[in-house]
């Protein structure tokens, strides 16, 4: 037998939990958006990789090789 007691408080708690869920998703979206903007503002996106990794040869374009 399942015990199911619906109290007014359960509804309110549920709506609060959904609200917190939406706030957390929004926060993640915010931080992700910031990351995208900040990386793009670096100008040359491949410098982002070259910062702490060896730059993949595939990222070097043909005219840069000629220089």
């Amino acid at each position: 037998m399942t015990i199911k007691v619906e109290h007014e408080m359960h509804n309110r708690r549920k709506s609060k939990n959904y609200g917190v869920f939406i706030l957390l998703i929004a926060f993640v979206a915010l931080v992700f958006g910031l990351t995208v903007v900040k990386v793009l503002q670096l100008g040359d996106a491949k410098m982002f990789e070259a910062n702490d990794h060896v730059l993949r040869p595939a990222l070097i374009t043909a005219d840069e090789v000629q220089q």
Binding site: H7, M9, R12, R13, S15, K16, G19, V20
Partner: peptide, 11 residues
């Protein structure tokens, strides 16, 4: 006892 606890706050 539920009646005695303060009303739980909503968002």
């Amino acid at each position: 006892s539920l009646q005695d606890t303060p009303r739980e706050a909503g968002l």
